[in-house]
């Protein structure tokens, strides 16, 4: 009798436990659905109304039309801004990666006096708002009478991306690489050859990661590009000026395009890099 009762309570407990788990997992999925909804709502609306057959990118949806995409491709200023953004992003990222790699190599491999200070100095721009970096540069450029151009935007973007590149590459320079470089030197490689034939290729995954992250940041950066450019502008600045005309399906179209291109690039990188890392 007592045993039976015990058995019954334990099966009840078991059932309660199961109920609790099912309930918990239901709540989890519900939460997941809601938050994904929140995350994707604006993007979905953006893309949907880029196909709007009408002058306003808001409901009701009048039907599918590609007219706004045509308008985007016909817009010479927008296309020029796209090219500018690409140019500034790649150039500034290459410079940031190169400087970051050299500095990381020196600080990870040689014992320099004050290396902690040097690391701190190189990382410092990361903790300062872009707006402040842009203002400082603007003030100096104004005082020196240097005209604003894509070059000045590029300089600003190297300032914000250098700490990032340095930190990523420095973090990947493990001590286990030291013996590999020693081996190369032992086999007769000069310092330059060790760096170009051994260290850089060995760290290529993290150098590429730093590069693509920099490109992303530079590509999307607004405030520095806005304050430090004049006639030639980058894409975010051009889109910004389009916004002044209010809600416009053309803005949806260029926004969707940028999004789709980014996702495509991301997908290719993911497949290429992740596929490779899985093999090893």
């Amino acid at each position: 009798m007592a045993f039976e009762q015990q058995a019954r309570t334990s099966s009840l407990l078991l059932r309660q436990g199961k109920m609790k788990r099912v309930l918990g997992s239901c709540l989890s999925w519900l939460y997941l659905a809601c938050i994904y909804g929140f995350i994707f709502l604006p993007v979905a609306v953006l893309v949907l109304f880029s196909f709007q057959d009408g002058r306003l990118p808001v409901p009701p949806f009048n039907g599918v039309s590609l007219q706004w995409y045509e308008a985007v491709f016909a817009d010479r200023k927008l296309m020029a801004a796209l090219a500018n953004s690409f140019l500034v992003a790649t150039t500034s990222s290459i410079v940031a990666c190169a400087l970051g790699f050299l500095a990381a190599y020196a600080l990870a491999r040689y014992r320099l006096p004050g290396s902690a200070w040097q690391r701190g100095l190189l990382i410092a721009p990361m903790t300062v708002s872009y707006l402040i970096i842009a203002l400082g540069l603007l003030a100096v450029l104004n005082t020196l009478g240097i005209p604003l151009s894509l070059w000045t935007v590029g300089i600003g973007h190297v300032v914000i991306n250098l700490p990032l590149c340095f930190a990523i590459i420095y973090a990947s320079m493990g001590d286990h690489h030291i013996n590999i470089e020693r081996a190369a030197r032992d086999l007769g490689a000069s310092d330059f050859k060790v760096m170009t034939l051994v260290t850089a290729p060995m760290l290529m995954p993290s150098i590429m990661a730093a590069f693509f992250l920099s490109v992303t940041f530079s590509w999307d950066e607004f405030i520095i590009a806005f304050l430090l450019s004049r006639f030639d502008v980058t894409l975010p600045v051009e889109i910004w000026s389009m916004l002044r005309s209010g809600l416009n399906p053309k803005t949806n179209a260029i926004g969707s395009l940028v999004f789709l291109i980014s996702v495509a690039v991301l997908l290719v990188l993911e497949l290429a890099l992740f596929g490779r890392s899985r093999k090893s």
């Binding site: 020693r182 030197r185 032992d186 051994v198 060995m202």
Partner: peptide
């Protein structure tokens, strides 16, 4: 090291991974 008639085989092999 490079100018010596010696080569070293390291404990962790130090093969060039790439």
């Amino acid at each position: 090291p490079a100018r010596r008639p010696t080569t070293t085989m390291f404990q962790d092999y130090a093969l060039f991974p790439h």
